[in-house]
Computed example of a mutant assay.
Amino acid sequence: MAHTVKDKAKLLARVRRIQGQTAGLERLLDSETDCTAVLQQIAAIRGAVNGLMAAVIEGHLTDHVVKEAEQAQRQRDLDAVLQIIKSYLK
């Protein structure tokens, strides 16, 4: 079973929290709130997205790299996640 299926409830809970945070950011901007509150909300959203990314990467590395029996497939899975990490960090 894929890790995103196995961890589906936890991952969806994280996504829903991010949605709530972005809705809160929209409300702050719409109400012309002080910029420090806006910056704090943006930082919270970034932290939440980074946490989600870390959870999915951890599951991927565990299930598709560490536990993969076939060396060639393990390398392909590792290469794919490394490319995604590089793109994410740009």
Rank of each mutant, 00 (worst) to 15 (best):
86 K>S: 10
25 L>F: 09
36 T>K: 11
68 E>G: 02
12 L>Y: 08
35 C>H: 07
87 S>A: 14
35 C>N: 07
82 L>E: 11
75 Q>V: 15
85 I>L: 10
33 T>V: 14
42 I>S: 03
22 T>C: 04
28 L>D: 00
9 A>G: 05
47 G>A: 13
67 K>M: 10
54 A>M: 07
58 E>W: 01
16 R>I: 02
58 E>R: 09
67 K>L: 14
19 Q>F: 03
16 R>S: 04
38 V>T: 02
36 T>G: 00
44 A>I: 10
75 Q>F: 09
36 T>F: 10
52 L>K: 06
50 N>F: 04
27 R>F: 04
48 A>E: 09
61 L>R: 10
42 I>L: 14
69 A>V: 07
47 G>P: 04
58 E>K: 12
34 D>M: 08
53 M>L: 10
44 A>V: 08
31 S>T: 14
82 L>I: 09
71 Q>G: 00
83 Q>H: 04
34 D>I: 06
14 R>T: 04
76 R>W: 04
28 L>Y: 02
52 L>Q: 09
62 T>F: 06
29 L>D: 01
16 R>W: 05
4 T>G: 00
68 E>Q: 15
22 T>R: 10
14 R>D: 13
68 E>I: 03
53 M>D: 05
16 R>E: 05
28 L>K: 01
56 V>F: 00
31 S>I: 00
44 A>Y: 01
33 T>C: 05
76 R>D: 03
1 M>T: 06
71 Q>C: 04
36 T>H: 11
34 D>N: 13
